[in-house]
Computed example of a mutant assay.
Amino acid sequence: MDNIAGSKSSLTWAVHISVAFLVALWLFPTVGLFVSSFRTADQIATSGWWKSLFPSEQNLTIRSAAPDTQTQDGALYVIEGNLFDGDEAEITAWGISSRAISDYTPGETAELRKGGRVTVQANGDYRMENEEAFSGKRGTRIFVTATKPAEFTTQNYENMLLDPKNVDGMAKAFFNTLTVTIPATIIPIVVAAFAAYALAWMDFPGRALLIAIIVGLLVVPLQLALIPLLKLHLGIGIGKGYLGTWLAHTGFGLPLAIYLLRNYMVGLPRDIIENARVDGATEFQIFTKIILPLSFPALASFAIFQFLWTWNDLLVAKVFLIDSTGQTTVMTAQIVELLGTRGGNWEILATAAFVSIAVPLAVFFAMQKYLVRGLLAGSVK
C-alpha cells in the first residue's frame, strides 16, 4: 500500500532525518563563524567555537608594568600589579622564558635574568623586587597558563568597522564586489533567457545537439578554462579588468542557466503560446509578455545561485582582476589580506567573513521562496 498515490510512505522518518542532517550541515559553520566573530584571538586559538560557553585554558604572554612605575619599599624597589588587569582568571602554571612557560606554580618566586625576582599568584597578582632600581622602557614578559571564563567582545567589530584602515579597505572592496557581482548576475540571465526560449519553443536544425552540448558543459571544471580564457582576453585586447571578469562569470554560468530555464519553459502550457501565435504575436512579444513573467521562479532561482557564486568568488577575481593596486580588490581578497603576512588575526577573519555574508544572506532570504519552484522546473508535467 505504500506505493499507492496519496498514501504516506513508511520512509517519511528517513526523509525528515536526512533534511535535518543537511540543514545542520549548512547551519553549523555559519553559527560557528558568528560565534567566533565575538571571541578573542586567544580563545579562538585554544578552543573551538562549540566550547565558547565554557572556561578554557590559554597560554598567554603578558608584560608586567613598566619600570617607571616602580616604587621603593625600604631598601627594595618594587613593581606590583595584576597580569589580567582585574579580569577573572586562574593561573595554573607560569614562567619567565618562552622555552619553559610552566616552570613555576602560583605562589612560587623566580629569579629574573637581569636581576631581581618575581612572584605570581593564582589570580594574576604579581610582585617584582630588586635591591637595585629596575631599568628599561618595557615591562618583563611573563608566560602564564591560565583558565579563563567564557568571554565575548564586540572589539572585533569595532576594529573591523571603525578602524579607518580597515573601513576604507572593506568599503572599497564592498563596492568592487558589487561592481563584479551585479553585472555578472544580470548578463547570463538575459542571455540564457533568450537561449532557453529558443531551445524550448522554436524548431530549428541541430536543437537537440545544442541541448546535449549544454548539458555536457555543466561538467567542465572551472579551473580547466581559466588560463586559456585569460590568454584569449589578453589576445583580443580585453586584458584584466571588470569586463573580463563579467565575461568569465557569464561563460561559466551560462550552461546551468540555460539548462535550468529551458527545463522550466518547456513545462509551461503550450496552449498559451499557440493562442498568442494565432492572435498574431511575434516570438519576441511571446517571450517578453508571456514567457518571462511566467518564468520568474526559475529566473530568481538562478539569480540566487549566480549571485552567491560571484559574491563569494576568489579564484576568478584573482585571475581576471588586477588587485595589486587595491582599486579592484573584492571582499574575498580583502579578507585574505586582513590575515596579515603571518597568517594570524583569526578573530578579524571571522568578523570580516561574517560581515561579507550579510548581503548574500539578505538576497537568499528575500528570494528563497522561488528557489524550490525553480529547481523543480521540468520535473513534472
Rank of each mutant, 00 (worst) to 15 (best):
residue 248 A to Y: 03
residue 309 W to G: 07
residue 216 G to F: 12
residue 283 E to P: 03
residue 202 M to H: 13
residue 329 T to L: 12
residue 198 A to P: 13
residue 221 P to Y: 10
residue 232 L to F: 14
residue 256 L to S: 11
residue 219 V to K: 01
residue 248 A to V: 14
residue 198 A to F: 14
residue 334 Q to F: 14
residue 203 D to P: 05
residue 203 D to L: 06
residue 259 Y to L: 01
residue 278 V to T: 06
residue 212 A to E: 05
residue 304 I to L: 12
residue 304 I to H: 07
residue 308 L to V: 01
residue 320 F to Y: 13
residue 245 T to C: 04
residue 230 L to V: 10
residue 277 R to E: 09
residue 332 T to A: 11
residue 300 A to T: 08
residue 267 G to A: 01
residue 270 R to H: 15
residue 326 G to A: 05
residue 255 P to W: 11
residue 243 L to R: 15
residue 296 F to L: 06
residue 211 I to H: 08
residue 214 I to T: 12
residue 298 A to T: 02
residue 211 I to K: 01
residue 242 Y to Q: 10
residue 261 L to A: 08
residue 224 L to S: 11
residue 318 K to H: 08
residue 302 F to D: 04
residue 299 L to C: 08
residue 246 W to Q: 10
residue 266 V to Y: 14
residue 214 I to S: 10
residue 299 L to P: 00
residue 239 G to S: 04
residue 331 M to D: 11
residue 287 F to Q: 07
residue 286 I to N: 13
residue 213 I to H: 00
residue 326 G to Q: 00
residue 325 T to S: 05
residue 316 V to A: 02
residue 288 T to I: 15
residue 324 S to W: 00
residue 246 W to H: 09
residue 218 L to F: 03
residue 241 G to Y: 15
residue 201 W to T: 15
residue 334 Q to A: 15
residue 211 I to N: 03
residue 223 Q to G: 08
residue 292 L to G: 05
residue 289 K to W: 10
residue 322 I to E: 13
residue 301 S to P: 08
residue 238 I to W: 07
residue 295 S to C: 03
residue 269 P to Q: 09
residue 215 V to G: 07
residue 246 W to L: 09
residue 303 A to H: 07
residue 211 I to S: 04
residue 194 F to R: 02
residue 230 L to M: 07
residue 212 A to C: 04
residue 251 G to R: 08
residue 319 V to I: 05
residue 208 A to F: 02
residue 283 E to T: 05
residue 333 A to I: 07
residue 256 L to K: 06
residue 192 A to E: 09
residue 329 T to H: 08
residue 325 T to R: 09
residue 242 Y to L: 14
residue 269 P to T: 06
residue 251 G to D: 02
residue 296 F to H: 05
residue 226 L to D: 00
residue 194 F to H: 06
residue 257 A to F: 05
residue 289 K to F: 12
residue 221 P to C: 04
residue 262 R to M: 06
residue 335 I to S: 11
residue 267 G to N: 00
residue 235 G to T: 09
residue 301 S to V: 01
residue 319 V to T: 09
residue 317 A to S: 15
residue 276 A to V: 09
residue 318 K to N: 07
residue 201 W to P: 12
residue 258 I to T: 06
residue 255 P to V: 11
residue 302 F to L: 13
residue 199 L to F: 03
residue 247 L to E: 15
residue 199 L to I: 11
residue 213 I to N: 10
residue 216 G to C: 10
residue 207 R to M: 02
residue 289 K to I: 14
residue 281 A to I: 01
residue 320 F to E: 05
residue 237 G to T: 09
residue 206 G to I: 04
residue 249 H to P: 04
residue 264 Y to N: 05
residue 269 P to K: 12
residue 228 P to H: 13
residue 237 G to K: 02
residue 235 G to M: 11
residue 247 L to M: 15
residue 218 L to P: 07
residue 224 L to K: 03
residue 238 I to K: 04
residue 327 Q to P: 13
residue 257 A to E: 05
residue 249 H to A: 08
residue 240 K to F: 11
residue 219 V to P: 09
